[in-house]
């Protein structure tokens, strides 16, 4: 199975990923060979098999909805790693146009 350039563009758009022209064409073929390989799963009889999402059975792990205060040092480190800021506030592009 081969991907069309339009399909690759659509996936890149869904993934919010800018691709170069070179990459767009290289990925088409590389992805096709990988998808061909994983396509072998279609031979397996999976009738009645439940999908397995985890290897150990863990269900609904809950905790009290308590507020935990972040220590000052961690807080200032987190703020220090903002790409852009004003004071202690994270600066971002407008979300609504």
């Amino acid at each position: 199975m081969s991907l069309t350039p339009e399909e690759v563009d659509k996936i890149a758009d869904l993934a919010r990923l800018e691709l170069s022209d070179e990459e767009r064409s290289a990925f088409r073929y590389q992805l096709s060979s990988i998808l061909d390989y994983v396509g072998k799963l279609s031979e397996v009889d999976i009738e009645g098999v439940e999908p397995m999402s985890h290897s150990i059975p863990v269900f609904n792990v809950l905790r009290e909805d308590d507020l935990e205060i972040c220590n000052t040092e961690t807080r200032s480190e987190i703020i220090a790693s903002f790409p852009e800021k004003e004071g202690d506030l994270l600066k971002v592009k407008a979300v609504f146009e």
Binding site: V8, L14, A15, E18, E23, F27
Partner: peptide, 19 residues
Amino acid sequence: SRGQGFGQEVRRRIIIGTH
């Protein structure tokens, strides 16, 4: 940011997974 921040193998796997 993602296009320039991620290397090729990472981009490849994100594309496969998204597809």
